Computed example of a mutant assay.
Amino acid sequence: MATGEGGLRERKKRETRYALSQAAIRLTLERGWDNVSVEDIAAAANVSERTFRNYFANKAEAIVATHVERGRRTAEALRARPADEPLWDALVNAVVAQFEPPPGSDGTVPTGYPAALQRLLAEPAVQYEVFRAHATAQDDLTNAIATRTGTGTGTDPGDLYPQLVAAVVSAGLGTALTRWTQNPTGSIAPLLREVFDQIRAGLPAPR
Rank of each mutant, 00 (worst) to 15 (best):
M1A: 13
M1R: 09
T3D: 15
T3F: 05
G4F: 11
G4T: 14
E5G: 09
G6I: 10
G7P: 04
L8D: 08
L8N: 13
L8C: 07
R9D: 07
E10F: 08
K13Y: 09
K13P: 02
K13E: 14
R14A: 12
R14M: 12
R14W: 08
R14Y: 03
R17E: 13
L20Q: 00
T28S: 09
L29N: 01
E30D: 13
R31S: 11
D34F: 00
D34G: 11
V38K: 11
E39K: 10
E39Y: 07
D40L: 04
I41A: 04
N46I: 03
T51V: 13
F52T: 02
F56P: 00
F56A: 03
A57Q: 14
K59S: 08
A60T: 09
E61P: 01
A65V: 01
A65H: 05
T66Y: 10
H67K: 12
H67T: 14
V68Y: 07
E69H: 10
R70G: 13
R70S: 13
E76G: 01
A77Q: 11
L78S: 03
R81V: 10
R81D: 01
A83H: 12
A83N: 05
D84T: 11
E85N: 00
P86H: 09
L87K: 07
W88G: 05
A90S: 09
L91D: 08
N93C: 10
N93I: 06
N93P: 06
A94S: 15
V95S: 00
V95K: 05
V96G: 03
P102S: 08
G104F: 08
V109M: 14
T111I: 13
T111G: 04
G112K: 02
G112R: 05
P114C: 00
A116H: 03
L117I: 09
L117K: 04
Q118R: 15
Q118Y: 02
L121T: 04
A122M: 11
A125S: 12
Q127R: 15
Y128I: 04
Y128M: 10
F131W: 12
A133M: 06
A133E: 00
H134P: 00
H134A: 14
T136A: 14
T136H: 12
A137R: 03
Q138R: 15
L141A: 05
I145E: 03
T147I: 02
R148V: 00
R148N: 09
G150W: 08
D156P: 04
L160Q: 15
P162T: 06
Q163K: 15
L164M: 15
L164W: 14
V165P: 07
V168P: 01
V169P: 03
S170C: 09
A171Y: 11
A171S: 13
G172H: 09
L173P: 02
G174P: 02
T178S: 14
T178G: 15
T178E: 11
T181G: 10
N183E: 13
N183F: 11
P184Q: 04
I188S: 02
I188L: 03
P190W: 05
P190A: 08
L191S: 01
L192K: 03
R193W: 10
R193M: 06
R193K: 12
E194M: 10
E194V: 14
V195Y: 07
F196D: 03
F196H: 04
D197E: 14
R200I: 07
A201D: 12
G202N: 01
A205E: 12
P206V: 05
R207Q: 11
